[in-house]
Design a binder for these strands. Structure first.
Lengths: 296, 296
DNA sequence: TAAAAATACTCCATAGGTATTTTAT
DNA sequence: ATAAAATACCTATGGAGTATTTTTA
């Protein structure tokens, strides 16, 4: 049921020494104990991890994989315990999640300036996750794009973003300045329904290889320019809202302070620059448009 | 010594129910057992996790942190076991690491086309890590920038990159076409020695806020365009080599196949690739120079 | 005073030890 | 023949159970 970290540690020792006797010595336990524990471990997992003869000990494929995973698990546990002990000593910590393309560093700097005692972690949120990290406690606040489920969340709208179509430079439409949804009517659209992509890079690769076009938020086009892609604003696609979100029900505290600070920094409507670098800004860079070649 | 995942699971139940009796019921164990286990867990960790009275159970700061960490740990363990079982069923997996700005998706697509049975994971490598993930088994091959320690690694040079200086658009030098190291002589340089940055975004934020200038590989300037930064090639900075690397000593197998495929795809000079038939790949774009505006 | 956590005690599974046997080179 | 893993058997620790006591809102 629960992975036994002690047995995992024993297994790692055997995997590294490729020898039960010496591994046992390094672990300060007797060799037969180690033999039994590893056998029990294999039984619990339902998988052979080692091919042993009296002359050699070799890892199976599953064993190799487990050995690789052991490092990750150990790191996760060590980091977790470290942070728990910090919390126990009274040190405060704030985890700020953000979707790809949304910049939070500015807000974090403003926050840490006023709260030097609070460590801030940034957590880039995978394309597929929206509000889940907030609900699971993996982030205390997050900078997200709509749509997401905001029940039980306190949200502060920050701005609105329109979308751009991402096309290969070789695409017939690549020479245009802007598009409408009608222009894209016959195109294969890469979205979560048609093709599951685990990362933005992967999606861009699919576009670059001619497997379809993608609709992406404008802010992403500023951070992910590529020579083989062009971004064209889609004028009639409804803009999506971006906002800060945090679980409801927390009173005053670091989370509320962060929301206040970040709102002031990211949404200076009261003062300076606009959140959506709109009309004056000569539309998304479209850096390589000069490269456009017809047909393919 | 080893974190006890069973006790952690028990703790999570109590944290969620905020009630020993009901948590025990949910765990299908008796309430006194749960009380004892949680007390033992707190003793092992050396930290109180819960403030209990007969009327209420509340998490301490350490308890809240541990509850958050529990999700991460559980996820890491579940994912690991899933991949180990896959490996046990004979499914092959290849983890490809890459430093920021280096694109591997093209090579991965070529590889998966010829090896459809092998799942490929991409592992973006943090700025601070170089060869470590290869040595720790967290990646099987990696696409890295020199310098790194290549002892015990098989490396295939892929290309060379010069560097660009990253400046705020407001900087007096921002209007130039290119720079030399002498131009940057009086500038505060943000490198690993002067200021520890945990991410590229953080470094860019520091540059944007005027705290210094950064030297970054050219390929990064193509992927991380920002309206408030300009990238200027530094003509006399020695170019750094990029290469594929994998641990030595593996015979033929997926890793060797990937190296071969990726070399052919990423280094077309060696002879073979067709996919991108435009030879005059128009030298690294330095995309944002046209955006340079004085003042703000 | 009553609900809920903690303690007392029992039982048993299992980690660990030593002595010995099996096995593959 | 021998090095090394596996097995046999023992002890002790710790997990889980039931019955009971302690605590505090």
């Amino acid at each position: 049921m629960d992975l036994d970290l002690r047995k995992l540690r024993y297994f790692v020792a055997v995997a590294e020494h490729r020898h039960f006797g010496r591994a046992a010595e390094a672990l300060f336990i007797a060799q037969p104990v180690l033999s039994r524990q590893i056998r029990a471990f294999e039984r619990e997992l339902g998988l052979p991890l080692l091919n042993r003869t009296t002359r050699s000990v070799e890892l199976t494929a599953a064993g190799r994989q487990l050995y690789e995973e052991a490092g990750r698990i150990g790191g996760a546990v060590d980091g977790a315990l470290h942070r728990v002990r910090e919390a126990g000593r009274g040190e405060r910590r704030l985890v700020v999640g953000f979707s790809a393309g949304l910049h939070v560093a500015e807000a974090i700097r403003a926050f840490t300036a006023s709260h030097p005692g609070i460590a801030v972690d940034v957590l880039p949120l995978p394309w597929t996750e929206r509000d889940a990290p907030l609900r699971e406690g993996r982030a205390h606040v997050a900078f997200l794009r709509h749509p997401f489920d905001d029940t039980g969340l306190r949200t502060v709208p920050i701005g609105r973003e329109s979308k751009a179509a991402c096309l290969p430079v070789t695409h017939p439409l690549a020479g245009r300045d802007a598009l409408t949804l009608a222009d894209l009517d016959g195109e294969p659209l890469l979205d979560a329904r048609s093709r599951r992509t685990s990362s933005l890079d992967e999606k861009f690769e699919l576009v670059a290889s001619g497997q379809g076009v993608a609709l992406v938020p404008l802010s992403i086009t500023r951070s992910y320019a590529r020579p083989d892609l062009v971004y064209l604003p889609v004028t009639d696609f409804p803009p999506v809202a971006t906002c800060l979100a945090a679980p409801e029900g927390h009173g005053p505290g670091p989370v509320a302070d962060f929301l206040a600070t970040a709102t002031a920094v990211l949404r200076p409507d009261g003062g300076g620059r606009a959140p959506e670098p709109d009309p004056p800004r000569p539309a998304p860079p479209v850096p390589e448009r000069a490269n456009a070649r017809p047909g393919r």
